[in-house]
């Protein structure tokens, strides 16, 4: 096995990050398109049907024009998979930031990243701890970009339930969407993290958004049906589809704990994965 050249890795990862960001901002994954299309056909409320029609036309227009589908192009959430021969160094983090800066200029993306206290905007979508980068080992070298817009992210919640409250998880998920109402641009996709730790549950909830949304377990279907009984509908105008899918990820937790995190995502469940060619 050859030792990879660090400067080549940096260039290749930056390029892959740029391409994944552009793809994610402009085009939706196939499974997401499928659930939007299915819901558009099944929706019975005439006003909601009009909203679905706009959403489908918007997706088409963005693809044809090669422009972002929403003006909130989010903050960069990045998932890296690194194979055994790629060393985990600061270079990888810097390479991803390079790719984000290039995407901001060339896609173009709205500069959204600010200092949390001074609110100073860096202008290039990077900052302290931003992009948010999550790394895991694997066989292939890939980068996944999940641009997270604020409207839906702001409606997300976490609860440390009691171990005896497993049957209250549904209520917490439904309550989160009830409180959110029209604000996260429904129909939404809901990521639920159950178990792990306080921070771990939130990470699981976000990772759940990357899972295929066109297949659900019986438990996920139950949660989806419960959320849709709210009738908030597309954009809060009323309708059958408040949510398109619920995805759950779990992890082992303390016997005295039941962390539950709910990460809300608007209909534009944007993410794209690109292999890093080196």
């Amino acid at each position: 096995m050859q030792t990879p050249d660090p400067s080549r890795i940096r260039t290749a990862l930056a390029d892959a990050t740029f391409r994944a960001y552009r793809e994610a901002a402009v085009r939706l994954p196939v499974d997401v398109l499928k659930v939007i299309g299915n819901a558009a056909r099944a929706e019975t409320n005439p006003v909601a049907r009009g909203e679905f029609s706009n959403i489908l036309q918007n997706i088409r227009a963005a693809g044809e024009l090669g422009v972002p589908m929403c003006q909130d192009t989010g903050v960069p959430v990045i998932y890296l998979t690194i194979p055994p021969d790629v060393p985990l160094t600061q270079d990888l983090y810097d390479a991803v930031a390079d790719g984000v800066r290039r995407a901001t200029k060339e896609v173009p993306l709205r500069p959204n990243v600010v200092d949390p206290l001074t609110r100073h905007n860096s202008g290039d979508n990077t900052g302290e701890g931003m992009p948010a980068i999550h790394v895991k080992p694997g066989e292939q070298f890939t980068v996944t970009v999940l641009p997270k817009g604020a409207g839906a992210e702001n409606m997300s919640r976490i609860a440390m339930l009691l171990p005896s409250q497993v049957d209250q998880i549904e209520k917490f998920v439904v309550e989160t969407m009830y409180l959110a109402g029209s604000r996260p641009c429904p129909p939404v996709i809901i990521g639920v993290g159950i178990g792990g730790t306080f921070d771990g549950a939130a990470a699981l909830a976000k990772e759940a958004l990357l899972e295929p949304v066109d297949e659900m377990t019986a438990y996920e279907e139950e949660l989806l049906a419960a959320v849709n009984r709210l009738g908030i509908g597309p954009m809060g105008l009323g309708g059958d589809f408040t949510a398109l899918a619920v995805k759950v990820k779990t992890a082992g937790c303390h016997t005295a704990s039941l962390p539950v995190a709910v990460n809300i995502q608007c209909w534009a469940n944007r993410h794209a994965t690109v292999e890093v060619k080196r």
């Binding site: 706009n54 959403i55 918007n58 227009a61 963005a62 003006q71």
Partner: peptide, 13 residues
Amino acid sequence: FAFTGGCAALASS
């Protein structure tokens, strides 16, 4: 009037 959230590309067209 309500216009569909997120439909930035449709709007600009």
